[in-house]
């Protein structure tokens, strides 16, 4: 147990927590928007895994991390477009299509990875970090929280953008209505299908970006099934946050600490089987669901396709 609390270790732990939290934050914020608009987006795991794969591919072949992120976000959006077409426009069962997309893309990315990289397992160079002036000089907290890749700051800023959208804009109101009372939105002359499509596409872009960050910055490599339930954790975050973006941030950080602890304990050589440590984040989810599950309120029309004139 020596050194568990020394400064370097603590800084590394927190740094890892933020790195682990960012994909969850992006997925959670994305899922929150879909759920607000009445679409339960189970396919988010599939969007993340394709984002991770394309993000890695883009960064690996172009040599630019930013092109990788772009590719990841576009990949996530492409999956979201399929989901929007099938579930929002055609009104097919969101759970069935969501599972199908997740399974299929997990299989497809594993298949493609096998043919491309299974012999070489190439890695990306470590990502550039941007230190925030002054704040980065704080001992322990500085290197842990304020020396990250720019996408991290973008993700945190996005929390406040989302708050602004939900509270102050017409779009936010429309999204809310699309989830709670789609018929009312329709009567007000706003296209429910279009509003929900915007929400699902945004979810796809954010989930894809989250996946790309996970592969490019978090791991520096793409391996099959790399997301390992991160998308599902995003869904849990969105459920528990009850529509509030700030809660998604706190929740993501909490899970980030759990995930980071998992790696930290392994590095510190604490003698515990990895399987037990790997259970931590999911255990944390179950405990949170037991404690706060009752309060997890969801929009009234969640999961129901909207068809004009249908009862």
């Amino acid at each position: 147990m020596t050194g568990l609390f020394d400064e370097v270790f603590l800084a590394a732990l927190l740094f890892g927590a933020v790195t682990a939290a960012v994909p969850l934050l992006l997925a959670g914020l994305g899922e929150q928007m879909s759920e607000k608009a009445g679409v339960l987006n189970i396919g988010i795991e599939g969007m993340m895994i394709l984002g991770a794969y394309l993000g890695f591919l883009g960064a690996y072949y172009s040599g630019s991390l930013w092109l990788g992120f772009l590719a990841g976000a576009l990949g996530g959006m492409a999956v979201a477009a399929v989901m929007a077409l099938l579930c929002v426009r055609l009104g097919l069962n969101q759970i069935v299509i969501g599972i199908a997309l997740t399974l299929g893309l997990e299989g497809l990315t594993a298949l493609l990875h096998h043919f491309q990289f299974s012999r070489s397992y190439p890695r990306l160079p470590a990502a550039d970090k941007t230190a925030i002036p002054l704040l980065a000089d704080i001992p322990v907290l500085g290197p842990a929280l304020f020396q990250h890749h720019l996408v991290v700051y973008f993700a945190v800023a996005l929390v406040f953008v989302m708050i602004y959208i939900y509270r102050r804009t017409q779009l936010g109101l429309n999204l809310q209505a699309a989830g709670d009372k789609p018929a009312a939105l329709d009567v007000a002359g706003i296209d429910v299908i279009r509003t929900r499509t915007i929400a699902v596409l945004t979810t796809g872009a954010l989930a894809g970006l989250g996946g790309a960050y996970l592969a490019n910055v978090g791991a520096g490599i793409f391996i099959p099934f790399i997301t390992n339930g991160a998308g599902f954790l995003g869904i849990v975050l969105a459920m528990l946050a009850r529509g509030r973006p700030l809660w998604v941030l706190f929740g993501a950080l909490l899970f980030g600490v759990c995930l980071s602890l998992t790696t930290a304990m392994q590095v510190a050589g604490i003698n515990m089987p990895t399987d037990i440590i790997q259970m931590l984040p999911f255990l944390a989810v179950m405990i949170m669901l037991v404690l706060f599950g009752r309060k997890a309120s969801l929009p009234a029309a969640l999961g129901m396709p909207y068809e004009r004139g249908a009862r």
Binding site: L40, M279, F282, M286, L289
Partner: peptide, 29 residues
């Protein structure tokens, strides 16, 4: 959780499956 708290079972069963897979490994090892 589903019966008395109305917590969505998709999420809870998925979480329990991640836990169960690890627990099965722990038991074996």
């Amino acid at each position: 959780l589903r019966a008395y708290q109305g917590v969505n079972e998709i999420i809870t069963t998925l979480m329990m499956t991640f836990l169960g897979t690890s627990l099965a490994n722990v038991l074996v090892k």
